[in-house]
């Protein structure tokens, strides 16, 4: 047995989960798909006293229409989202990102809420949440319910606004603006590896074919999924051209502080980030109907 000892609770209702979290606070840890937590337990990087398993909790998984968008119960499996016609229809950027997460055996267990609550800045779903302005529903015994934006939720490496006694119960992703083109592009050394860098982008064009609105989110380059509001604003009103896209990509990576490690130097990562922004913006603009 590799994990340090813990006690295991298998609640069947959300109320029971909230009671357990209220009782155990930071000594309690919820497990959903476990695809990030089990390795951390096995390496003893995480040593909770009580593991609270969400897998038997009724009503915590499911994909439903929500105000033109899609709401995901926190324990919705990534594979279920991948196979959802509603996701394919409403959330093209999520549909494009899901197959890039780990491997099928991982996605068969991994959950939408788990990945977002884990908040690995190199993971795809936090970037999707950030670029779509997702709303995260948090509940606790003491505080009731609060709904945070992705921008409020992600605070740093593996760090979120979730309090010790709080449970992420739902992820609400708004519907796409009319005419929007989306793209999710990443560079990984091998399929399914954590990406060195990834970019989620959205482009909406006006009647003249210029950019009406743009969104850009980089992953793997900072301690949170990094939205770039200044670059997004600077794209508005610009004609879609190779020069526009290249300038935005240069601006996007200008302020990044990137460390070197065994997977690549900081300079290499900056190069990848610039190229990936260019590709994502170009693809998103194409999909929004920009002439080739």
């Amino acid at each position: 047995m590799k994990p340090a000892p813990f006690a295991y609770a298998a609640p069947t209702t959300e109320d029971e989960v909230l009671d357990l979290l209220a009782e155990h606070g930071d000594e309690g840890k919820v497990i959903a798909g476990g695809q990030s937590l089990l390795p951390m337990l096995s390496m003893r990087l995480a040593r909770p006293s009580v593991l609270i398993d969400l897998n038997g909790v009724a009503g915590l998984a499911g994909i439903t229409e929500f105000d033109g968008g899609v709401a995901f119960g926190a324990t919705t499996r990534e594979r279920a989202a991948e196979r959802s016609a509603l996701v394919g229809d409403r959330l093209p950027v999520l549909a494009e990102a899901l197959p890039l997460i780990g491997h099928e055996a991982i996605r068969n267990r991994g959950t939408i809420g788990g990945s977002i609550a884990h908040a690995d800045a190199s993971a795809e779903l936090p970037a999707v949440a950030a670029v779509t302005d997702a709303q995260l529903v948090l509940r606790s015994r003491a505080g009731g319910e609060r709904v945070l934006s992705a921008a409020e939720f992600f605070q740093g490496h593996y760090t979120t606004a979730l309090a010790d006694d709080e449970l992420l119960t739902e992820v609400r992703i708004p519907g796409s603006p009319p005419g929007a083109g989306w793209a999710f592009t990443e560079v990984a050394r091998r399929h399914g590896d954590f990406a060195l860098v990834g970019v989620a982008a959205m482009v909406v064009l006006d009647d003249a074919g210029s950019v009406e609105a743009a969104r850009l989110c980089l992953m793997g380059v900072a301690d949170v999924p990094l939205r770039l509001p200044a670059v997004e604003a600077s794209l508005a009103g610009q004609p879609v051209s190779a020069d526009t896209v290249a300038a935005a990509a240069t601006d996007a990576v200008a302020g990044l502080e990137l460390a070197s490690d065994v997977h690549g130097s900081g300079d290499f990562r900056r190069h990848l980030a610039e190229v990936t922004v260019r590709r994502a913006l170009t693809t998103a603009a194409d999909r929004a109907g920009a002439p080739a």
Binding site: G34, L38, P39, S42, R79, A105, I106, N108, R109
Partner: peptide, 9 residues
């Protein structure tokens, strides 16, 4: 469904 049995209790 294929799963990793090392990542499941």
């Amino acid at each position: 469904a294929a799963v990793r049995s090392c990542l499941l209790l």
